[in-house]
Design a protein around this nucleic acid. Structure first.
Lengths: 211, 211
DNA sequence: CCTACCGATCGGTAGG
DNA sequence: CCTACCGATCGGTAGG
């Protein structure tokens, strides 16, 4: 079946192994073996382990940027909120290794990820924020919500919960139909309930209770 | 100042280094050096690197169990909710390495963590759940909330956001007064708004909007 | 708690 | 893309 792009195969294998065992826990030999070549051959494609790491992250963020446009179009307004949240959730559920890789990288190289977030994610957050501000001025959003902080928490909620989803489901009752779907549904609900004022209630009568 | 318990010093150093660089990324030599002893001396206290890993995790969960009682007493009911959430948040903010360690361990050894969660965390979740169910039957909670799934997400939201907090603040506007405090305040608000019905609104008129 | 030492594996290079 | 090989470092042991 021809040579199915060794470089792409290496990237895929590295992504999977880095996500599962971490960067330090993965040897170049293990990645090469997963593709059926020898370690020095891998180093012909990627000059060093560090170079491979960057390539894996670049690849992930490139795929993210492919999805971005459809996210940017629909951002706030109660009805579109579901679409944006679902698209983001789908991206990471589509391959949970993406979430695991991002979380690991954030823990291993906080500064690196911070730089990348500011380049890749912040512009998108800014757009979403503007549309949410509009929704807020229309009284659709909880008046005490801190929109920027909310978006940040929502992103970490989606990425983080998908990264460790297999472990989280263990805290749910056993023998359940589909515990992953249950988590997803509740994430969607609490994300919306945490931001939007219920339709019937007027913003004025809406006041946080305790303290 | 006497010998300040080498074993405890080793545990502290291992916790810090495992949290910062990961288990595979940390050498026994590095841990020993941080305490001012040699590697074989470390191996006298902890028979193997794996044994040290377990001890570090045991230590973390033992400290958690020290805090548990005060959490168990106050669980649901809108007013107590803040106390429980704050106590949990304080525990991890008190030493963010705890959060980072837990997240790393969950990624590295999902099965191990799952077993531990079922022993250490699930009982507590069950108690909190019962009290939340009572609150729900009184109409204080969103009728469509999935309490078990909500609690799971809330735990991951707290642990996950503290684990990567230094990176998350980079997504907030710069020159801000205290971006960490801002994240904490919003986490508290969204956690409550995502669960509790506003006091004035009656449960009946409360209906999720979109879809 | 130390020095001395072990085999295994690591990332990477030489040279083809 | 390979074989052969490098120095460095790894977790762990011997023996005191």
């Amino acid at each position: 079946m021809a040579t199915p792009d060794v470089r792409a195969q290496l990237l895929a294998a590295a992504t999977r192994l880095f996500a599962a065992r971490g960067f330090e826990g993965t040897s170049l030999q293990a990645i090469a073996a997963a593709v059926g070549i020898r370690k020095p051959s891998l180093l012909y494609h990627f000059g060093s382990k560090e170079e491979l790491r960057q390539a894996v992250l670049d690849d992930l963020l490139a795929r993210w940027n492919q999805v971005l446009p459809e996210l940017l179009m629909a951002a706030a307004e109660r009805d579109r909120f579901d679409g944006v949240l679902d698209a983001m959730t789908d991206f990471f559920l589509d391959d949970p290794d993406r979430a695991r890789l991002l979380v690991r990288e954030t823990l291993d190289r906080p500064e690196d990820v911070r730089d990348r977030l500011e380049r890749y994610v912040r512009p998108w957050v800014a757009v979403a924020l503007n549309q949410l501000k509009a929704a807020k001025s229309e009284g659709q959003v909880h008046p005490r919500a801190d929109l920027a902080a909310y978006v940040v928490h929502l992103v970490q909620l989606v990425v983080g919960s998908i990264a460790v989803m297999d472990t989280l489901v263990a805290l749910l009752p056993e023998g359940d139909v589909d515990r992953r779907e249950r988590l997803r549904t509740e994430l969607r609900r609490m994300a919306k309930a945490g931001l939007f004022v219920p339709r019937a209630a007027a913003p004025k009568q809406y006041e946080v209770a305790a303290e």
